[in-house]
Nucleic acid binder design. Structure first.
Length: 553
RNA sequence: GCGCCCAUAGCUCAAUCGGAUAGAGCAUUGGAUUUCUAAUCCAAAGGCUGGGGGUUCGAUUCCCUCUGGGCGCGCCA
């Protein structure tokens, strides 16, 4: 028995052992075990003979020939041969597949026990929108990527903190406070201009109205620092709670909401400045305080403290990340929209200057989102206030579609969200395809309890010997490998693609083989067990995606 | 001008850290249900992977270049 171990890993180990036997060093060879493009080629294939040819000082096929007897001797291997330019193609034994399936059927957790070094304390920071307005659809993409990644990391044994960093100390907050103040004055007939760069959205007026309700005319004509601080606090709280409500509507919960202001209060900001100054990386120019980023390999020096005395976002964000390091995370990931990519090299320069170890700070960039409706791309401008909010999107297409759609696209691809398509709630929607597969299986067991009450889970597996049976089991058994891929590439769309294909194979299987046939109870038991395992994986996968999994549709 | 990302079927996207004959869904055409959920399945058609060069056993993938698009390049965040 292998316990819960992906067949890829089983083969990888076997191949590595064979290499050693031939006097080669497997660790020096970047070979892979993959599923071949066409089923006739076998269950799995490896490029090891081609990759190892140089080290072995043999032609790929010659090395392959030398490995064949060793590989054939592996207990899991039924057949192995050399094909094409030197691929080793494997067919694994039925017994191995049955064992795999049985382990999965009984497994509590669908992934192997994590190695101790896997239990890293990591942090994912995402969304982190300033509390100056509602979340946009772009934040939605980020929220889904971050939340799903966090879930997968967790599943694989990492100690994950989901974090939302919000700016409650910067210049934007002053503008926010002043904007609300202006709207408030307007309610009493006093006209003031919205400041340059201020906020015009309807939600600003709403906050002003709330203040009018609670404090009546108390602040009319008053713009002392205390009054503005009150407006700031009120607006911030109102917007943060509305943002949290939006996130709730997507079932996204953060472990920590981290305040920018706290970095000033606990001295992190001044500590960072001291540390940088000690290294002669800080200087004064034109009334501002600068960071010598150029000395750290970044292009141009950057301002830390403006000539008006206020810290820049960059400065506090350095403190934010230094604080993360102090908080004991081993690795942190920031998920940023592509419009923030210019920030990366600066931040890396700062981390280097503060002697934060390389590899601690990581950025996961995702490309922008645009919306299409009625065949036309909707032009959105946050500044002009004519953007589609995430709340609106969720209301249009629902939580499941919102999450699935954002998760199914490679983060490096600019995503055009077709609202009409997602809204149609038809079979175009891949979410339903997956949910339907799950509901179908549930229905199967409903029926089985009537017509085939003697069914026992994990019996009759030895009758699963057809090509389709083997492919289904292989697909199911690859689930842990897929989660590994998600984490290695920070690519959540690998998971949606996999689940979609799993559902597709199941639908195919369903249409070709009967599951419940009391006259063939052994075969039926085997197939039902297969269906049970499929359901287990779909449930788990949709759970990681945060997509619901109804039992009937 | 400099930097990051992208360009794949009519449309939206995949392609396992360089692998074998580039795959799905939608749309189009034609089929499948007296039997476990037809929100399903089967089949057909659809491509010089934006152009050109290079690296090697092998390139959608890596390098160079050109074209086209998105996003940055602030004492905003």
């Amino acid at each position: 028995m292998h316990g819960l171990m992906s067949p890829k890993d089983v083969l990888y180990r076997g191949i590595a052992a064979s290499l050693k036997e031939l006097g080669l060093d497997p660790d020096a060879l970047a070979f892979h075990v993959e599923t071949p493009p066409r089923p006739e080629m076998g269950d799995f294939s490896s490029n090891v003979a081609m990759v190892g040819a140089r080290q072995a000082k043999k032609a790929p096929r010659a090395l392959g020939e030398a490995m064949l007897p060793l590989l054939h001797a592996l207990p899991e291997v039924e057949r192995v041969c050399i094909e094409g330019p030197g691929f080793l193609n494997f067919v694994l034994s039925d017994a191995f597949y049955h064992e795999q399936l049985e382990v999965i059927l009984h497994a509590q957790e669908l992934v192997p026990e994590p190695m101790p070094e896997r239990r890293q304390k990591i942090q994912l920071e995402f969304v982190s929108a300033n509390p100056t307005g509602p979340l946009t659809v772009g934040h939605g993409r980020q929220a889904v990527i971050g939340d799903v990644l966090a879930s997968v990391y967790q599943r694989l044994g990492f100690d994950v903190t989901r974090e939302y960093y919000f700016n409650d100390a910067g210049k934007q907050m002053q503008l926010l406070a002043r904007s609300v103040w202006v709207r408030y004055q307007e309610l009493f007939g006093h006209e003031h201009p919205i400041p340059e760069g201020g906020y015009h959205g309807e939600y600003i007026t709403e906050i002003a109205r709330n203040i009018q309700q609670s404090h009546a005319q108390q602040f009319v004509g008053e713009d002392t620092p205390e009054v503005l601080a009150f407006f700031l606090e009120t607006a911030k709280n109102a917007l943060l709670s509305s943002i949290q409500k939006t996130l709730e509507a997507m079932s996204i919960r953060f472990d920590v909401f981290f305040s920018e202001r706290s970095l000033f209060e606990d001295g992190t900001v001044s500590l960072v400045q001291e540390l940088l100054a000690k290294k002669d990386l800080v200087y004064q120019k034109e009334g501002a305080t600068w960071f010598r980023a150029s000395a750290m390999g970044d292009g141009e020096d950057k301002v830390l403290i403006r000539s008006d005395g206020g810290p820049t976002y960059f400065f506090t964000d350095i403190a934010n990340h230094y604080k993360k390091y102090q908080r004991g995370f081993e690795k942190v990931y920031d998920i940023w929209g592509a419009d923030h990519h210019g920030h990366i090299s600066r931040m890396e320069a700062a981390m280097k200057a503060l002697e934060v170890p390389e590899g601690f700070f990581n950025v996961i960039l995702h490309q922008m989102v645009s919306l299409k409706q009625g065949g036309e791309i909707m032009k959105m401008s946050t500044r002009a206030g004519n953007f589609v909010t995430l709340d609106e999107l969720i209301a249009w297409v629902g939580q499941d579609a919102t999450r699935y759609f954002f998760a199914m696209i490679d983060k490096d691809t600019h995503f055009t969200f077709d609202i009409d398509l997602a809204q149609s709630r038809s079979m175009d929607n891949p979410v339903y395809y997956l949910q339907y597969a799950h509901a179908r299986i549930c229905s199967l067991f409903e029926k089985a309890s009537e017509k085939f009450p003697e069914f026992q889970l994990a019996s009759g597996l030895s009758h699963l010997t057809g090509q389709e049976d083997r492919q289904m089991i292989r697909m199911i058994a690859l689930y842990p490998s897929v989660l590994e891929e998600v984490v290695q590439n920070n690519a959540v769309h690998r998971l949606t693609n996999y689940l979609f294909e799993l559902a597709s194979r199941f639908h195919h299987y369903y249409n070709h083989f009967p599951f419940i046939d009391p006259s063939q109870s052994e075969v039926s038991s085997g197939r039902l067990s297969l269906a049970w395992a499929t359901r287990k994986i779909i449930r788990d996968g949709l759970g990681l995606l945060g997509v619901s999994c109804p039992e009937t549709m």
